[in-house]
Write a protein that binds this DNA or RNA. Sequence first.
DNA 1: CCTACCGATCGGTAGG
DNA 2: CCTACCGATCGGTAGG
Lengths: 199, 199
Amino acid sequence: MSPRNSVREAHRTRQRIIDRGVVIASVEGLEGLTIGRLATELELSKAGVLGHFGNKESLQLAVVDAAAALFAREVPETVRDVPPGLPHLRALCEAWVSYLERDVLPGGCFFTAAAAEFDGRSGPVRDAVAGMNALWQRDLRIHIRHAISSGDLPSNVDADQLLYELAGVMLALNHFLQLQRDRSASARARRALRCLLGA
Amino acid sequence: MSPRNSVREAHRTRQRIIDRGVVIASVEGLEGLTIGRLATELELSKAGVLGHFGNKESLQLAVVDAAAALFAREVPETVRDVPPGLPHLRALCEAWVSYLERDVLPGGCFFTAAAAEFDGRSGPVRDAVAGMNALWQRDLRIHIRHAISSGDLPSNVDADQLLYELAGVMLALNHFLQLQRDRSASARARRALRCLLGA
DNA sequence: CCTACCGATCGGTAGG
DNA sequence: CCTACCGATCGGTAGG
């Protein structure tokens, strides 16, 4: 093989590791994601896995990035063409419910799990998780504000309060789906959203 | 020492292990709670720790029980004397917010963390966590239904829907407090509760 | 409750 | 990308 091809192969292997890492981490957590397990499942040596990242923390950061990219692909990008403000906000929330409902990852919402796992710690992984969260909330807040200033939501709506309540609806959805295995939770999520965002 | 005293001492040691285990697990998770760490922090040998429980799973189950007892002491028992129905429900929710706001455990809500950690697994620990959750929801549902049948809440309120939305408020509170370190979250939780349960 | 172990697995490195 | 290691730590046991 040419060196060019070899570089591409290496990149493909790296991607295989990350993709599997997102799935494992959604169930076992980012700490439960071990290099040995990745190596076994992908039929690589441990050194073959670790060589792509250097150390476990860098692997965890790559997995966090990949999970964010997956979420972006599944939620905001699917509603890219919906007009900004309330229509966009509603579409985002529906795509979000659908994302959780379809069990795209076996462990449910990656970021809910990672947030619960790392919220009491410090360091780059915690910062990355919190940063992704902040980015997503910023996105939502922009559309909430747009909806208020355009008159689609009443002018007395508090943007941060609404953001808080939307987050609650989604956290509860993940909780009821994953812990109680209650499939009717998504219907309750949609009903709560209708209450918050209108029909 | 008499054997009687020795038994009491052993019981005290066991309690020390469990109490420290609840604190550690609230930050590191129930899997991150290791026997070696408990031994070091309590100045015991590993065998001295493990001897009280037999194996790690039994230790985890004892810690789950103790966390449930702590929550019971801090929330439902403090509002024992409030009349059933809507007054009791409001008092329960206020005690719940206060419990999270006061950072009784350094890692925030033990059961939220444990639920996120174990929801994708199976076995006795997962069952214990899910069971405690179900018990608490049953308690809340009883007071919601009482409030509806006594006319304190409108008769068109759906008890399970309200339960879902209350859970969302609390999950969001824990999330914003722990991940974003946003101390103003408890004000938003109270505002959301007023919206759901009236002034 | 201790000391003294056990095999397994962890993250990580050296050298090719 | 591999083999062949390393020290540290894991849960757990034997024997006292």
